[in-house]
Structures are given as structure tokens and as C-alpha cells.
Design a protein around this nucleic acid. Structure first.
Length: 555
RNA sequence: GCGCCCGUAGCUCAGCCCGGAUAGAGCGUCGGACUUCGAAUCCGCAGGUCGCAGGUUCGAAUCCUGCCGGGCGCGCCA
């Protein structure tokens, strides 16, 4: 890559300066290389001279001058080297070096942008994990889009990745679900029963109740609630989970594993993790309950793991779940949580550390709320009353690509406005179409070239030197940044960087396309440009791929 | 009260982790561009005390401190 090579040259130059005693180099000194905002400042700029000036007690421009003098560049890699402003060294890379990027993109094709950053580290992304007590809503959709994209990005950067869904199929919520269905079932059979507010109100409860009636008739009408509950809970939970699986699959999300919370109780993992913590001295007894001393590990208060009544808490099963993850050999566990869980973050990190892992072995990402709008007006949503917009409805209305892309345009820890009308609009308001359109346009050029048998693909006649326009070099530079964007996206666990980059790239392409013809009489020029736009298409397609968004050839 | 996150153009946001030269997009406003590869596009104009105040630095949207404003969280609930 161009940047790495530039850095190599600068480092060897610095070493030479040190050896020849031109100036002192503090130990641990590292050269900073950046892409300047202003084109006039070159392709790369470094502030070495500014930072070395002080320890050497001389002016930055003098340091820069001796540095540049030592800068050997036998193969013409740099087209120009300049000292500017207070002492920046601006570097302009020669076009021929940039042209190599195009070859690289075509050679690597689908693999362009992939890297070995992760060195095969075993990473799990656990996301959505909604309770199987109701259908997925828009907020879950955001978690799904972010989690899935993140997993893809990590895969692309050399991590071994696993997608997991944690099913909360134990505890009171699932019981409440069973009770809700049971009560509706009784009502269907004509019995007058109170339907408490604490039960789930949505229509989907009625649906399950009717199904139970179809399967079992009235045989549970006179059965006591405690007796009927396991069956009703189990059935409703399974059916709803099937729905969730279905919705996610239609959204393009496929999990490697669906992990049951109940299994942790059944196989004794919950008891085991408490024993582990006890043995390590993290547990004490107070007021008849067992407490986890999480304050010792950065939490603001200690947490109960076994209540005075002998029941374990939700946190206890979460500890067991995470212990299980690490026993499976995971190097890094990434959990995506709804933002309302953020009071829970510190205790989870504390828990993981108490289990003997580094804090860095866990990354909790909070996904903020989705604010659903229609033409700028807030769409009312109330989960309790069962009035919410489901993910399924949103996909049906705006489509999978638009939904995914919009979910990914903002950093996930800030709230997101999602306007249903805007998402459907086929215009520049809607960044999905903007990027996809660029891909479709290029595809259309390629189709045309094929139809006219223009032989634009013949490599032996290809002369990149015909790409002389500043816009063309700028486009290649932008393409060369793509692998770095993906790597940074993985490093910071921030998928939103990719939609942002793609929008910029699409914009540069659209502008270029408008001003210059690709296909034209000058065959050599046409070939060079054709090759360039093909490279753009490769990058757009690869980028959209990471987001789970399609790259259409026609729209 | 304590803790976490946020505050950048009229609106929605990127940039902050790792300080750099004149702070960027899109939308919206206004005005332009289709006989030529897809106008779902492009071009131009206008729009900023980067919440406020200090500090560190040759240099701060970026790092530190305090304050102001907004959001969320603080159960032997899940």
C-alpha cells in the first residue's frame, strides 16, 4: 500500500539522519503521516520537523531541510517533496505509483479490502437477543444491522467470527408470556377472566391463544394455571422465536448459534459460575443473600447473585453465559445491548474480570434508540399497549437495503431518526440509492461496452498514463483508502465509517461521470477510464457487501 | 445526588480515540445543467464564537479542568 511504503521511506530517512548525527531523535519517536485536508498540501504530510525542532533547539524549517536532503527516492516514488508553512513536509506521490492501486484492485477483486488485522482471533458478536415474548421492532432492526455488519467487517479483517443470539427463555418474562396466552385462551372459550395490565397486550397473543385452542380444544380450560403454564409458555415462546428467526433471516441476518438461557440452568452452569466466583473470593453473604463484590472491580455497588429466597438473579445467568463463552475459547466477546441497559455495563465487565479474563476480552456496545418518523412526525410507539412498528413492517415498507443502510449511517451509540417516507424516496435524500445508483451506472457502462464489443478490457493495451485529470488521481487515492477504512471500522467497532466512505466515493464518481466521458473514440483513453470505473465498482460492491446491502446492476 | 453518553451550518450528522495548515457532507433555501455512456445525477450561491470559560501546546473541534444545556441509567426486576 502507498501509505505504508511512504512511511517506510520516511522511517529509513529518519534513521539515516540519526546515524549521520544531523539531529537528535528521542527514543520511541514515531513518524506521523496524515492525509492533508487541502490538496495543495500534497498526498501526505508529515510533521516530523515540527516535533523534532524543540528537542534539537532549532527551527522546524531547518530540521525539515536536512530531512528532505536525506530523503532518497531512487525509483521516482515521490513526484514532489516540499517544505511548507511552519515546517510541514508535504509529499506528492507520482501517478505511476497510484496506478498500481488499480492493478491491485482488479487482481484482488472480491478480496480487495480484506486483511489479516485480526490474526485469526476468535470473536463472537452477540446481538439482538430480544426476549421471545413479542415480535421484533425497529430498534431490534438497528441492532441486527449493526451486529451483522460488524461481524462481516471483523471477518473481512481476519477474525474468526461467530454470530450468536441469546434466548431469554427462563425467568418471569417467559412465564408472563405463557400466562398471557393462557388467559386469552380461556377467554376464547368463553370464560370471564381478568386480563392484567402486566400481561402482554398485543394481538400476537390472541393469535397464539387461538392456535392453542385449535391444537388442544378445551382440554386446558379447567386446568390450574401453574399446571398449564409450562406448556403455554413453551409453545408461545417457540412460536414467537420462530417468527423472530424468520424476520431476521428475511433481513439477511443468519446466526451461527442460538443459545438458550434455560440450558444454563438445566446443565448447572449457573450454580457452577457462582462456585467459581466463591472459590476466587468474589462472593459474600449479607441479609440472607449472596452478593458479588463488583465494587472491587469498578462497579458502583455490589450485586446480588442469589436472592434471600434462594432464586438466582438474571445477572447470575448472565455471568454463567459469559463464563460459557470463554470456555468455548473465545478471545473476544462483543455484546450489543440496547441503550437502556447501560446501567448494567460496569457489573458485566466486573463479572468478566472476576472470571479471570482481561477487561479487554469483552466489548459491550450500546445501540441507541431509533426514533421512527413519518414525514418528520414522530410515529407513536408503545410496547406495553402492543402498538409498535415491527421490523417486518418496516422491511415490507422501505425494503431491506434502505433499512440496513440507514441503520448503519450513524454511529450506533447516538440516537437515530428513521423517517419511513424518506427511506422510500428514490433521491439524493436517500443515501442508499445514491450509492447503489453509482454501482448501477457503472454496470450500465460495462454492459454498453460489451454490447458494442469495444474490447475495453484488453489489458495489454492498457495505458494508465492516460489518466491525467486531477479528478482521476483523486479517485484512485480514494480507492486506495478503502482497506484502511475497513480496518479502522474493525479496530473501533464502528460500522458507520463504511457507509460514510461509500457515499463520498459515489459522490466523487457521479461528479467525474458527469464531466468526462468514459466510452469514447480515443480507445486508449477509454480503456484507462473504463478500468478506473470498474475499480470503483469493485470497491462499492465490496463495501455494500460488508453492510449486507445489495449492489444492483440495474435499478 | 451519583454515573455514563451527547452538544459542530436552519435541520440531520461526519471529523475527536492518535492535536496540525483555510472545520466537511447531505438535506433545506436560491439559481443553473438532459440531441451524446442512466437527471435516482451534476454545477454554483448563501450559511459556523465547533455549548461556555479556563488550562496544556509552536499549534486545540480534537487533550485536561470547571460550568451550562439535553438524553439515559442507578431493584434481592428481566
Amino acid at each position: 500500500m502507498i501509505k505504508t511504503k511512504t512511511l517506510e521511506i520516511l522511517n529509513s530517512t529518519l534513521k539515516r539522519c540519526g546515524e549521520r548525527g544531523l539531529f537528535q531523535i528521542p527514543s520511541g519517536f514515531e513518524i506521523q503521516l496524515e492525509v492533508p485536508r487541502v490538496d495543495a498540501h500534497g498526498d501526505f504530510a508529515t510533521n516530523v520537523a515540527l516535533t523534532l525542532a524543540k528537542p534539537n533547539r532549532c527551527s522546524p524549517r531547518d530540521v525539515a531541510a536536512s530531512f528532505v536532503e536525506q530523503l532518497a527516492d531512487g525509483d521516482g516514488f515521490f513526484a514532489r517533496v516540499e517544505i511548507a508553512g511552519p515546517g510541514f513536509i508535504n509529499l506528492v506521490i507520482s501517478p505511476s505509483a497510484w496506478f498500481q492501486i488499480l492493478d491491485e484492485i482488479h487482481r484482488l477483486d472480491l478480496n480487495y479490502g480484506r486483511s489479516h488485522l485480526g490474526h485469526g482471533r476468535y470473536v463472537q458478536v452477540e446481538f439482538v437477543s430480544a426476549n421471545p415474548t413479542g415480535p421484533l421492532h425497529v430498534g431490534h432492526g438497528r441492532g441486527a444491522a449493526v451486529g451483522d455488519a460488524l461481524a462481516s467487517i471483523l471477518e473481512a479483517t481476519g477474525h474468526r467470527v461467530e454470530r450468536e443470539y441469546y434466548i431469554n427463555d427462563a425467568g418471569t418474562q417467559i412465564e408472563t408470556l405463557g400466562r398471557s396466552v393462557f388467559l386469552r385462551y380461556q377467554q376464547l372459550l368463553g370464560r370471564q377472566v381478568d386480563f392484567p395490565e402486566t400481561c402482554y397486550q398485543g394481538d400476537y397473543i390472541q393469535v397464539r391463544a387461538r392456535e392453542m385452542q385449535e391444537i388442544h380444544g378445551d382440554s386446558y380450560l379447567n386446568v390450574a394455571e401453574e399446571e398449564a403454564l409450562p406448556l403455554f409458555s413453551d409453545y408461545a415462546g417457540k412460536r414467537i422465536l420462530d417468527g423472530i428467526r424468520n424476520d431476521l433471516q428475511e433481513f439477511g441476518v443468519n446466526y451461527d448459534k442460538w443459545f438458550s438461557e434455560k440450558s444454563l440452568y438445566e446443565n448447572g452452569a449457573v450454580d457452577r459460575v457462582i462456585e467459581t466466583l466463591k472459590a476466587a473470593g468474589h462472593i459474600y453473604e449479607k441479609d440472607g443473600a449472596l452478593w458479588f463484590r463488583s465494587t472491587a472491580l469498578g462497579d458502583e455497588k455490589d450485586r446480588v447473585v442469589v436472592r434471600a429466597n434462594g432464586m438466582t438473579t438474571y445477572f447470575a445467568s448472565d455471568l454463567a453465559y459469559h463464563q460459557d463463552k470463554y470456555l468455548r475459547g473465545l478471545d473476544l466477546v462483543i455484546d450489543l445491548w440496547g441503550a437502556d441497559h447501560h446501567g448494567y455495563v460496569d457489573r458485566m465487565y466486573a463479572g468478566v474480570m472476576a472470571l479471570g479474563k482481561e477487561r479487554e476480552a469483552l466489548r459491550l456496545l450500546l445501540v441507541q434508540l431509533v426514533n421512527l418518523l413519518r414525514k418528520g412526525q414522530q410515529v407513536a410507539m408503545s410496547t406495553r399497549a402492543g402498538e409498535f412498528v415491527t421490523l417486518r413492517e418496516v422491511i415490507a415498507e422501505v425494503g431491506r437495503d434502505a433499512a440496513r443502510f440507514i441503520f448503519l449511517t450513524r454511529r450506533s451509540d447516538s440516537p437515530l431518526d428513521f423517517d419511513l417516507e424518506l427511506a422510500k424516496e428514490k433521491s439524493a435524500d436517500n443515501p442508499v440509492y445514491y450509492v447503489q445508483y453509482a454501482h448501477a451506472r457503472i454496470s450500465s457502462i460495462i454492459r454498453l461496452a460489451e454490447e458494442q464489443k469495444l474490447a475495453l478490457d484488453e489489458k495489454e493495451k492498457l495505458d494508465f498514463n492516460r489518466l491525467e485529470l486531477p479528478e482521476e488521481i483523486a479517485l484512485i487515492k480514494q480507492l486506495s483508502l478503502y482497506p484502511e477504512v475497513v480496518e479502522n471500522s474493525a479496530r473501533f467497532l464502528e460500522p458507520h465509517r463504511i457507509p460514510y466512505y461509500l457515499t463520498q466515493l459515489a459522490s466523487a464518481f457521479h461528479s467525474y461521470y458527469k464531466h468526462h466521458r468514459i466510452i469514447q473514440d480515443d480507445l486508449a483513453l477509454a480503456q484507462a477510464r473504463f478500468n478506473l470505473v470498474q475499480a470503483i465498482r469493485v470497491v462499492i460492491r465490496n463495501g455494500l457487501g460488508l453492510l449486507g446491502v445489495s449492489a444492483p446492476e440495474k435499478m
